[in-house]
Amino acid sequence: MQTTHSLLTLGGVSLHRIDFDPTTFDHADLLWLPHHAALSHAATKRKADHLAGRIAAAHALQDLAIATVPGIGPNGEPLWPAGVAGSISHSGTQAFALAVRGDNALVGIDGEQLIDEQEAVEIQDGIICAEEKSVLLSTGYPFSLALTLAFSAKESLFKALFPRVNAFMGFDSAWVTAISDSTLTLSLTRPLAGFSQNHAFILHWCQQKHSVITLLCE
């Protein structure tokens, strides 16, 4: 599969980005992955996305002088080496990854294609509550962009917390309480992963044409 590696700086942190052409994917490309057998029954798109994400992750681990590729956990989560926290995401024809040293570090990345305006109206109740909608509308951003940010930020937070919770979290587990031109604040609606109710997490975000990227790294 044809890929291009580059770096993207977000919140002062360098993310590894892989631009890939899924039309050039060949099933033999998966043999590069130690866990390729686990993907044998996956759809072709899933295989291409996964491969691009693991290539990004391999670059991120190389920054730490670690030559390996994260495997797949029982819930589909990436299995990072001991002493490392990291996150992987893919959106469209891009994949992103970040790895840092520290078992207790919180790392979550998410990339999302912008939600269509009509779809945003239709699905908003499954992502945000009325109070959050007021926050989103107060930004002056198009509602589709603001809702995509809320969706993506919650995904990033949940990815960061998953190693501690080891369970999936609903969108009502955290509320959007503030959005600036580069950050978004989420507050827990209940005690979770050792954090108290109302604990606030500040995530960084950026927009790239028709997609957004959110990052939690602390």
Score class of each variant (00 low, 15 high):
54 R>M: 10
22 P>K: 09
83 G>W: 09
136 L>T: 05
129 C>S: 15
36 H>S: 11
174 A>N: 09
183 T>K: 00
30 L>T: 11
204 H>A: 01
101 R>D: 07
193 A>H: 02
73 G>L: 10
38 A>F: 04
207 Q>E: 10
36 H>I: 08
65 A>L: 12
93 T>F: 10
148 T>L: 04
85 A>W: 12
99 A>F: 12
217 C>R: 12
145 L>F: 12
217 C>M: 11
7 L>M: 12
95 A>Q: 07
167 A>D: 11
125 D>W: 06
213 I>H: 01
71 G>K: 03
90 H>A: 10
44 T>D: 13
146 A>S: 14
80 W>S: 02
185 T>R: 10
26 D>K: 13
44 T>H: 08
1 M>H: 07
68 T>I: 01
51 L>V: 10
78 P>W: 07
112 E>V: 06
118 Q>Y: 14
133 K>G: 05
76 G>T: 01
218 E>L: 13
101 R>F: 12
137 L>I: 11
82 A>S: 14
204 H>Q: 05
201 F>W: 06
146 A>I: 08
140 G>Q: 09
57 A>K: 02
109 I>A: 01
145 L>P: 03
97 A>N: 11
67 A>W: 02
39 L>V: 03
2 Q>E: 14
30 L>M: 15
98 L>C: 08
87 S>H: 03
112 E>Y: 02
150 A>D: 05
69 V>W: 14
97 A>V: 09
162 F>R: 06
8 L>T: 13
72 I>C: 06
157 L>R: 02
188 L>C: 08
21 D>R: 13
211 S>M: 14
172 D>W: 13
33 L>G: 04
207 Q>G: 09
168 F>P: 00
22 P>N: 10
56 A>R: 09
19 D>E: 11
101 R>P: 03
212 V>C: 04
122 E>R: 13
138 S>A: 15
203 L>T: 00
92 G>P: 02
70 P>V: 04
127 I>W: 15
152 S>M: 00
205 W>Y: 11
94 Q>F: 10
105 A>D: 08
198 N>P: 05
61 L>E: 06
63 D>V: 13
91 S>P: 06
192 L>T: 12
86 G>Y: 13
143 F>T: 01
160 A>H: 00
120 A>Y: 02
130 A>Q: 09
99 A>Y: 11
5 H>V: 15
78 P>C: 03
27 H>A: 09
46 R>Y: 07
101 R>A: 11
70 P>H: 06
96 F>P: 03
46 R>E: 01
19 D>V: 10
218 E>T: 15
2 Q>V: 14
61 L>D: 06
71 G>I: 06
173 S>N: 12
133 K>F: 06
123 I>Q: 10
133 K>R: 15
142 P>A: 13
15 L>S: 05
60 A>M: 11
202 I>P: 00
85 A>T: 15
33 L>N: 07
99 A>T: 08
51 L>P: 01
52 A>S: 05
9 T>R: 14
22 P>I: 09
100 V>M: 14
63 D>Q: 14
72 I>M: 10
167 A>N: 07
82 A>Y: 08
194 G>E: 02
202 I>T: 15
76 G>Y: 05
73 G>E: 10
1 M>F: 07
155 E>Q: 08
